[in-house]
Amino acid sequence: MPWFKRQPVTLDASGEKNVRTEGLWVKCEQCRQIIWKKDLDENMSVCPKCGKHFRIDARTRLAQLLDDNQYETFDTNLSSTDPLSFVDLKAYRNRLQAAQRDTQLKDAIINAYGKLDGRPVIISAMEYAFIGGSMGAVVGEVITRAIERAHDARTPLIIVSASGGARMMEGVISLMQLAKISAALARLDGAKVPYISVLTDPTTGGVTASFAMLGDLNIAEPGALIGFAGPRVIEQTIRQKLPPGFQRAEFLLEHGFLDAVVPRKELKAYISRALAFMIP
């Protein structure tokens, strides 16, 4: 028999819990600073202390780049037919539905027509929150249509990448999107219509190995992970730790594969400047 018995204590914490703090504060992954969410939003989702660029969704991106947040979207109704009826641990069909519900998009891409500093542009912005921004038949087709529109209307094209690469659940169909988009870009290039590729965190795999690296200018946000193979795959292949900063935007700049690394706050001005150079 125990000597004493612990009395169950019921804590009354209702008073404290009524203060809602959830979602009001964000911790910066890089400098561990606690940031007031509103401050972060006002700073274009860039950490005010260390300058870390948080990932932003496609709509926020369009709002940041296009004048007065005014734009017209197109090719919004395309959705995947799950051509392989792909099932791994979960059915692809279910993954698609969940992503569509969460992002209110049909797939990982928005095509928009708007004005950037008064100049008409077409922007194709990828949505990382939709299955890792991965590219299947829909993303490939939507981007190709943006390119064709830009070609036909001779309107400058901007593609903002944020993607893990080709979408495995659509197998080789995803791979063929690389070919399709690159071929369309060859035409755009031939017609001398400007194309600016903006690489944001992260841009890897088949997206980097196609349109993201084919801009007249390839520019990236600071700290963005950009590469062909993922860091883990490389580590497994070469069996050693990767150097710090490997595959970050600054690393690519140093090796000559980016034309500029531009902070988010200056991105619109930089593109505007570039378009002025490219358009008579």
Partner: peptide, 13 residues
Amino acid sequence: AYPGLGAEERGQA
């Protein structure tokens, strides 16, 4: 395509 350190440095993508 080779997923190596040098390949990335030299712009595999």
